[in-house]
Design a protein around this nucleic acid. Structure first.
Lengths: 329, 329
DNA sequence: TTGTATGCGTTATCAC
DNA sequence: GTGATAACGCATACAA
């Protein structure tokens, strides 16, 4: 390249990076050579030289949850504003996959990471955060000092349960994705939502009934299963709060399968406001999270942290919204 | 690192890469130093040296379509088998974003690319393919010589339309995502599906009615909109084939909105078999694609191509399956 | 304004 | 078995 342009590599670097102090003649020669060779500067050399890659990785438990994909959109927006690119890593909630990709941050292939969920123990997460710029988004361990952005899960769950109570319901079930047996659950938010649910109940002097709490996974099937069990109870609940829309939609289907009408026979509330929520019949009452902003803000924190180097301990809480639709009356 | 281990960098490299010919003493010294410094070899240097990154990029029109996410799962499986990692790029069907990420392949940051859709002109795609290892998956321009893997879209659409006809339907509408005005549509498959639909019709001597063909976008809303228009026709169709499940589900909702029963009043067929298809009521009749295999095979072709360097022209067609569920009787 | 030389962190070649 | 050393492609300090 330097040869065909007839100038030194230094000059080439200068024109490519639009540095001042290059004669028009030289610039023209370089431009011509670039054209001729269809030349593209290698990122490999550049990265090694400046020892950062302008790449960040985001860990996502599953790419197929539309909730997360909207959050990622916000991350991308902020990232692009700052010339960063994103690697999305679908961990499928598997520890092994997550660890494999964490290598990428330890070997400096990415400048930082955002976790939308993690199977890491708190201790591991702390150690990672001490050495590299990372932030947590939506899901986070609240016992540790890693920057994060989220909504107030406890409060949101409290509000939606309260909504159910105001409608006159007393037998309100919870379907969650927290198995509780596992001390370090993937879904800390689920636990917070359970707390909010319980607070609303106790505030209204409704005794929490352990039979009404079903613990499964974060998907349709699990919601379906749980709802079927709930409906077989001798004293079946008249309302259900599911900690995620996917779960709630499964529950909705289970009701229909048993010939029950929603919300007449049983009211259903979800959480997240994924796009499917408006497509089911009836449309789902849920908690809307500011998905885009969540991602945008998380990326902002990360970029800040990459720039400063210092792991400032920040927790950002964004506003949620109770969206009342057809599944609750 | 070399200093604290008390050996040369060459030796360090040897033990890290488990090369033969290292004394136990030296190996121990290196191991100790690694432990001490929490040392991780930099991928940056390694990449520069070997001039490849073991990274491939996959272009996806939207991360939130669960159809694509399952395909990506297959890609990841094959990639991991061969020590490759994946960058997922959500292009949002935007040319600008796609072009930005194509830089990554031109500047050798990734070893290859898979396109699950593309806004590139055929000419651009050809040129790219001549210079870099790329393959197309699911969506592809069939007029050019880029390796690809897909199902037989025309045939699948033919079969599902035929299914509708066998049920006695004669007024069969099509809702597609191909706008036809745009010569190089993102969704070539949509065009093929339209062809299959038309072939089935003409084979059964049913005159294709242009009024029955609606052209919109690849999402719920668009299906809803199109269906509403269809239902306002003086002679409304009794069956609808939507070229994607997301569209079909929108159509389903539109029917319900007008008080119509599915499949009694109008039958609906989709395409893709996304996970949500079984959650709607009634569950959706559709064409199931071997999503995982599609991705797996595409990655296989790509890795082959990266290895050989020569762009062998291969088209792989996988089997689909007609899945009859509740929306057609 | 331009070129030369150096280093980023690896791996590979060669000599010891 | 081991250690210098060159090279990968770039950006920069310094010299010219």
């Amino acid at each position: 390249m330097a040869r065909v342009a007839g100038v030194s590599v230094a000059t080439i670097s200068r024109v490519i990076n639009k540095k001042a102090g290059v004669s028009e003649l030289a610039a023209a020669k370089v431009a011509k050579a670039i054209e001729e060779l269809d030349y593209q500067p290698s990122l490999l050399g550049k990265n090694l030289r400046r020892s950062h890659t302008k790449l960040v990785i985001v860990f996502i438990p599953t790419i197929s949850n539309t909730f997360f994909s909207k959050v990622v959109l916000g991350m991308e927006a902020k990232a692009h504003e700052n010339d960063y690119n994103i690697i999305i890593c679908d961990t499928r909630s598997e520890k092994a996959i997550e660890h494999k990709y964490i290598e990428l941050i330890r070997n400096r292939f990415v400048d930082g990471a955002i976790f939308l969920s993690s199977s890491l123990e708190s201790a591991e997460m702390i150690k990672l955060s001490q050495n590299y710029p990372i932030v947590q988004c939506c899901e986070f361990n609240d016992d540790i000092d890693v920057p994060c952005v989220s909504i107030d899960n406890e409060k949101a769950a409290y509000e939606i349960t309260k909504h159910l109570i105001k409608l006159g319901h007393k037998k309100i079930a919870l379907i969650t994705a927290d198995d509780k047996l596992n001390a370090s659950s993937m879904y800390h938010s689920a636990r917070l939502r359970e707390q909010g649910y319980k607070r609303a109940l106790s505030e209204s002097k409704i005794r929490a009934n352990e039979e009404y709490i079903k613990r499964g996974k974060y998907n349709f099937k699990s919601g379906q299963l749980a709802m079927n069990e709930l409906l077989e109870l001798k004293s079946a609940p008249t309302a259900v709060f599911a900690v995620a829309d996917t779960i709630a939609i499964g529950a909705l289907k289970a009701c229909r399968g048993k010939g029950l009408e929603v919300p007449k026979d049983v009211a259903i509330a979800g959480f997240d406001d994924i796009s499917f929520s408006t497509m089911v019949e009836p449309p789902l009452t849920t908690i809307a999270q500011p998905q885009f902003d969540l991602g945008y803000k998380a990326m902002e924190l990360l970029i800040e942290r990459i720039g400063s180097g210092t792991p400032q301990r920040r927790k950002v809480i964004l506003e949620h919204e109770l969206v009342i639709r057809g599944t609750t009356f």
